[in-house]
């Protein structure tokens, strides 16, 4: 903790970064993102097990960018978000400085994408066993049982778009949902609108999702949205050998192909 404060103070003092995005104390027992812009503000930094939010989403926010060079306290998901964003030409190498807090309290500083790539090769980036189990449970159901499950979940959706706003990969200036010539996804949060929206979002995140879980934790109606995209991680990995957010120069799995891609359903 003191390590972090010391480091961020130094980064701000020698102007390596102008703003450092870290965690601070929030309401009640919550943790929130804070934007540290001076050495005095570093006192507000907090680091504990509740610090799970993927802060990489903020590095693309217009008003944060205006503050100057960004440093960010990145967890594994945030590091992967950065690489994925890099592969989609949203961040340039060296543009954002990332600090990673090791379990032993030390800090690892990443100033370029290469070091993140190397670091991630020895890091567990998979989804949790709990999440795996939930997916397995759903997969064990019949198709119509799954339809009913999702129907019930989507019924709760109020289309507040918190999932989209919280997702570091949902950075489009105009989301497909908001494209209205023609209006492809119904804006209404009725069954059809919700089904369309969530399937569209899952499909657009297939091969890009870095399993940070922000969508599900942002959802005020507690819809397990992350399962939709998590479920696609494994077929994309086994089928095409691709995992999102591991290489800064990766080619998006769904914008490329291999002549011998395996399938068993095309006649």
């Amino acid at each position: 903790m003191s390590e972090l404060i010391k480091k961020v103070t130094q980064l701000l003092n020698d102007k390596t970064v102008d703003v450092f995005i870290g965690y601070g104390k929030g309401s009640a027992d919550r943790i929130r993102a804070i934007f540290v812009r001076s050495a005095e503000q570093t006192e507000k930094l907090v680091l504990n097990s509740a610090c799970t939010q993927n802060l990489a989403g903020y590095i693309l926010k217009q008003e944060v960018k205006h503050l100057g060079k960004i440093g960010v306290l990145a967890n594994v998901a945030a590091l992967r978000s950065m690489l994925q964003l890099a592969s989609e030409f949203q961040v340039k190498d060296g543009e954002v400085l990332a600090l990673f807090a090791n379990p032993d309290g030390t800090l690892t500083e990443f100033i370029d994408f290469h070091s993140i790539e190397v670091f991630l090769t020895t890091t567990d980036t998979g989804i949790t066993s709990d999440e795996q189990e939930r997916i397995a449970q759903l997969e064990a159901l019949t198709v119509s049982e799954r339809w009913n499950f999702w129907n019930k979940e989507f019924e709760k959706c109020i289309k507040c778009y918190a999932c989209r706003a919280a997702c570091p990969m949902c950075y489009c200036h105009r989301c497909t949902t908001d494209v209205n010539q023609p209006q492809w996804i119904p804006v209404a949060s009725h069954e059809r609108g919700n089904l369309d929206y969530h399937l569209m979002r899952a499909m657009h995140l297939a091969g890009r999702c870095v399993n940070c879980g922000e969508c599900a934790s942002a959802c005020p109606m507690d819809i397990p949205l992350n399962l939709l995209t998590y479920q696609l991680i494994s077929p994309i990995k086994t089928g095409f050998g691709a995992t999102a957010g591991m290489k800064a120069d990766a080619v998006y799995a769904l914008s490329t192909y291999k002549p011998d891609d395996k399938e068993n359903f095309i006649i």
């Binding site: 119509s144 049982e145 499950f149 479920q231 914008s255």
Partner: peptide
């Protein structure tokens, strides 16, 4: 068609997981 094939593979997975009968879509060459 190579690009399309990849997307269909993923899309079928998603449909199936969302509870939509993939049998209703027949892909063919």
């Amino acid at each position: 068609n190579f690009h399309a094939r990849r997307r269909w593979i993923v899309f079928r997975n998603l449909l199936n997981f969302a509870g939509i009968e993939t049998e209703r879509i027949q892909f063919s060459w």
